[in-house]
């Protein structure tokens, strides 16, 4: 690895100050599972690496008046083991379990995962299905964005060069919302998603009153399939055909690519199957409760 300066600020303010001074000539080190690979094998190294491991404001999972707050530095393993997540947003556990392997989940963080903003991002779809918001901070202040606004393009987020992701909020209204997640990879462990899908459903009086469908790896960013959502909104919970219809419509909202992992045609098939399955599972959860 090429040499660089290393700092480990112990507070968010200290971190933001340095970021303000040094932007854009630094890299932030969260779990390191992507950054270290870049530092070793990437074309050119940064002058400064700032370790976020000692910044307390980026840690922790807690209930707040606005909803469930998840610090950007929370690891995938911590999500898998969190009682609060299990209670309020268990689909996040299902998504976390599909990321990398044990070692990468022990190191990798949800914030780091979102910031990479790759289309196949495994933590993205559930957060979109749960209408999550993110807080970003810079030396000039804080902003709150919808998760869908945070994702701008492949490897491109709404972060300015002197901003960082502080935390993720699942709004109170979405806590406990029936949500399901599926990932299709070439194998189970350590696989990038060919397609991943999440859905959340709210039911009232045997009708689907709100549905969110989120799809990954089939467009430049994680997307919401809003046309598919409209198909099932208002339909009866007994209307099994509605889920198939919604899945078929969701396929038309994707723009999958051909690559060495899968063809676009195969990805479209997976979208149809995956969307149907997450809707079916979310509906089952919604009607059970």
């Amino acid at each position: 690895m090429r040499s660089f300066e290393y700092l480990a600020p112990s507070s968010l303010n200290e971190l933001l100050e340095v970021m303000g001074d040094r932007a854009p000539n630094f890299k932030l080190l969260a779990g390191g599972t992507d950054l270290l690979v870049d530092l070793k094998h990437g074309p050119s190294g940064p002058k400064l690496v700032m370790d976020l491991g000692a910044v307390p404001e980026l840690k922790g999972i807690e209930e707040t008046p606005l909803g469930l707050r998840i610090g950007a530095m929370v690891t995938h393993s911590q999500i898998q083991q969190s009682a609060l997540i299990a209670e309020h947003a268990p689909a996040m556990m299902a998504a976390a379990a599909t990321i990398g392997a044990v070692q990468t989940r022990n190191m990798g963080t949800i914030g780091g995962n979102l910031v990479t903003c790759v289309p196949s991002l495994d933590s993205g779809p559930v957060l979109v299905a749960l209408d999550a918001q993110v807080t970003v901070a810079g030396v000039h202040g804080r902003r709150v964005l919808a998760i869908t606004e945070f994702f701008v393009g492949p490897r491109q987020t709404a972060l300015a060069p002197d901003e960082l992701l502080v935390d993720i909020l699942i709004p109170t209204a979405m806590l406990g919302r029936a949500t399901a997640f599926r990932k299709f990879g070439l194998r189970k462990g350590q696989a990038l998603a060919l397609v991943n899908a999440a859905a959340s459903i709210a039911v009232d009086n045997d009708r689907i009153v709100e549905a969110r469908i989120a799809l990954g790896a089939v467009a430049p960013t994680v997307i919401r399939a809003t046309d598919g959502e409209r198909v099932i909104t208002g339909r009866s919970t007994d209307d099994v055909g509605a889920l198939r219809e919604a899945a078929a419509v969701a396929v038309t909202e994707t723009r999958p690519i051909d690559d060495f992992r899968a063809s676009a045609a195969y990805r479209r098939e997976l979208v149809a199957v995956g969307t149907y399955r997450v809707l079916e599972e979310a509906l089952a959860l919604a009607t059970r409760s």
Partner: peptide, 8 residues
């Protein structure tokens, strides 16, 4: 458990 190659 962690990957020692990915930690400083």
């Amino acid at each position: 458990s962690v990957n020692a190659c990915l930690l400083l």
